[in-house]
Amino acid sequence: MARLLARYADASFWMARYMERAENLARVIDVNATFARYDTGASTWTPIIELYANQEAFAAKYAEADQASVVRFSLLDLDSLQSIRAMVRAARENARTLRPLISTEMWMHLNTFHDWMGNLRPNRIAEPHLPRLCAAIKERCQAHAGIVEGTFFRDEGWSFYQLGMMIERADQTTRLVDIKYHTLLPNPEDVGSAHDVSQWNSLLRSAAGYHAFRRIHPRGLQPADVAGFLLLNPSFPRSLSRCVDDVNELLTSLKSKYGLTGGNSALERLDELQAVLLEANIKEVIGHGLHEFIDWVQRQLNTVTDQIVADFFGL
């Protein structure tokens, strides 16, 4: 069989990233809307814009960051590339490139998902419909993941897909944790209050991690435990550690299974990241500054991406 075209590897990697990002953004919007139902005050929506570093693009279109404007910007806006609709479109454009490679089911599902997003009217994103809409988007993303799992031929193209998915998921989980800290930091005395606990609860649920967390921590719900679970638990499929381990395995298998010579510098960087995560104690991390830690992780992940791009997609 012919070696995978570099352009296909590139498209596969990014298709996965866009879909994973879309799913996670739906999770972030969903959890933030849940927070907003407890709080009053418009300021609770700005973190979503900040998390994705979209302040400029947002300010160009909207005067105020309230639920209506942020949700509209994050769900439907096609002008920036940061809305779910734009991500699904970008995933579909990559899928278009990959059509010779991917299953008909995969293309057909993305195609109909894209059309469905395109037909969403602004009234569908209004508050009473928002949780259901986010659930519907997540479900479509998960259907995509299921079709990929069930139909994507297991060759290098699959590995690059998985790489993209895991790097993006790692990055997104750090954002999800970060958003809670953005939201709550101003009032340290709130920590541990009923209000605080219910927010951590929502956060866990938005990452589909509540029940798994309960199995590990049956009695309490300490913020540090939740952050530790989402970042460092080796078995939770969305945890940073789990994803980083997966990325490492995938890159290693590109060498061992397919005999590719690239990926060394990315692996070095990942080893470093893995070592830090293995040693990390969540209380110390929080003590030193969770946001700073997350920022560092995200920069490491970006570097890994850059190195994958240079080694495999370039030439």
């Binding site: 012919a2 070696r3 995978l4 075209l5 352009r7 296909y8 590897a9 010779p100 030439l315």
Partner: peptide
Amino acid sequence: AREMGVPLVEGRDLFVEDDRVYMRTIEGPA
């Protein structure tokens, strides 16, 4: 391309060196 089981390439995926044609893959020219 699918029916033939061959890569669909664009011009930018191919190059010519010493009058031979190569495609750009993840492991260099083929």
